[in-house]
Simulated scan of single mutants.
Amino acid sequence: MDPLVVCLVICAVTTALTWLASVITHEYSWVDRIWSISPVIYVWVFAVAGAFDARLVLMAVLVTAWGIRLTFNFVRKGGYRPGGEDYRWAVLRGRMSGWRFGLFNLLFISIYQNALILLFSLPALTAFEAAGMPLGAWDLVLAVVFLAFLAGEAIADQQQWVFHQWKAAERAAGRTPQPAFLQSGLFRVSRHPNFFFEQAQWWVFYGFAVAATGVWLHWTIAGAVLLSALFVGSTVFTESISRARYPDYDGYRARTSAIVPWFPRGLKPRPDERTA
């Protein structure tokens, strides 16, 4: 069977199941729970259909490494436990009427996000259509850069994990954590370094489509473009919550790049700011 058709069927089934699970449990992070799993499945479908073409296997191995790391991080944060819903969905529910959120859940959380996951996996389709083209120097460069971005995201997530563990310990001891939010380590040069590295990996993944064909622009770039657009909206929403919670967050915003790591502007971190 055509691997694209197989992936479309998997996507349709996954969409239906995640939506149904959200309706039954009244938790809306079911797509979050399969976010790090579905791309691995999609890319391996193309690798198997391509008779384990070297480039497709390389792409599948890289995505598998990405999926393992992201799944591990999601597990340790309790994302798979009952009640492990992303806190932002609860905030959004409070801002929308019941029927509007129900429609949002169906169209955006379930349908759009599952479609997006498939879309940013589809450079594998371009590579599949060019199967047989030998690996070259650009494939090696892309693999190294992908792994570097993967390591960057792992470091950012670890710094965030250590900070929140310390923050929870401070509260358990009856103390008020200071600082209240992470602004050191990689978070000194980007307010959302994990967002940056996540997007960057999928732009690099699209690069394999270019390496396979020698052509810069394919329609399968749409996944990386739409993923970046999603992160823009997610960043704005996340920061609206942070600004409401922390009076000094605006100062952090003023001196720190939003996504792309860059030199801080003006103020330096206080001595008591924690690094991982």
Score class of each variant (00 low, 15 high):
residue 160 Q to G: 11
residue 215 V to Q: 13
residue 59 M to W: 11
residue 220 T to W: 04
residue 258 A to L: 14
residue 174 G to F: 10
residue 44 W to A: 09
residue 85 E to C: 03
residue 34 I to Q: 00
residue 24 I to A: 12
residue 215 V to N: 06
residue 235 T to K: 01
residue 117 I to K: 12
residue 212 A to H: 09
residue 77 K to N: 14
residue 39 P to A: 07
residue 162 V to W: 08
residue 126 T to C: 10
residue 77 K to Y: 05
residue 126 T to W: 10
residue 57 V to S: 01
residue 193 P to L: 06
residue 189 V to N: 13
residue 33 R to Y: 09
residue 119 L to D: 08
residue 106 L to F: 07
residue 215 V to K: 09
residue 151 A to V: 08
residue 260 V to L: 11
residue 126 T to V: 13
residue 88 R to E: 01
residue 182 L to H: 14
residue 94 G to K: 03
residue 13 V to D: 07
residue 215 V to A: 15
residue 110 S to C: 06
residue 178 Q to G: 07
residue 168 A to E: 09
residue 184 S to T: 02
residue 146 F to P: 13
residue 266 G to P: 12
residue 181 F to N: 04
residue 260 V to Y: 11
residue 135 L to M: 14
residue 49 A to M: 04
residue 256 T to W: 00
residue 250 D to A: 15
residue 257 S to G: 12
residue 92 L to C: 01
residue 244 A to P: 04
residue 95 R to C: 00
residue 28 Y to Q: 14
residue 63 V to Y: 07
residue 94 G to C: 06
residue 33 R to G: 13
residue 200 A to N: 01
residue 249 Y to S: 12
residue 219 W to V: 04
residue 180 A to D: 08
residue 9 V to K: 05
residue 249 Y to D: 07
residue 28 Y to T: 14
residue 243 R to G: 08
residue 174 G to V: 08
residue 27 E to G: 02
residue 257 S to K: 13
residue 213 T to A: 02
residue 231 F to C: 12
residue 42 Y to P: 06
residue 138 W to R: 08
residue 180 A to W: 00
residue 201 Q to W: 04
residue 147 L to K: 02
residue 193 P to E: 11
residue 70 L to C: 03
residue 204 V to F: 07
residue 57 V to R: 03
residue 143 A to K: 02
residue 269 P to C: 05
residue 182 L to S: 02
residue 80 Y to H: 05
residue 267 L to Y: 13
residue 119 L to R: 10
residue 155 I to Y: 13
residue 141 V to I: 15
residue 261 P to G: 11
residue 86 D to W: 02
residue 251 G to A: 04
residue 40 V to S: 03
residue 175 R to G: 01
residue 63 V to F: 14
residue 60 A to S: 15
residue 63 V to D: 07
residue 73 N to V: 12
residue 232 V to I: 15
residue 36 S to D: 12
residue 74 F to V: 01
residue 58 L to Q: 15
residue 91 V to R: 14
residue 86 D to R: 06
residue 48 V to K: 05
residue 70 L to T: 04
residue 134 P to N: 12
residue 149 F to R: 01
residue 53 D to E: 13
residue 189 V to Y: 15
residue 57 V to G: 04
residue 113 Q to Y: 03
residue 169 A to Q: 06
residue 115 A to M: 06
residue 81 R to A: 11
residue 64 T to Q: 10
residue 184 S to G: 01
residue 204 V to C: 09
residue 202 W to K: 08
residue 268 K to P: 01
residue 157 D to F: 08
residue 267 L to C: 09
residue 205 F to E: 10
residue 198 E to M: 00
residue 92 L to F: 14
residue 142 L to T: 04
residue 223 G to A: 09
residue 273 E to S: 14
residue 197 F to H: 12
residue 234 S to K: 07
residue 268 K to E: 08
residue 247 P to C: 05
residue 208 F to R: 15
residue 215 V to S: 09
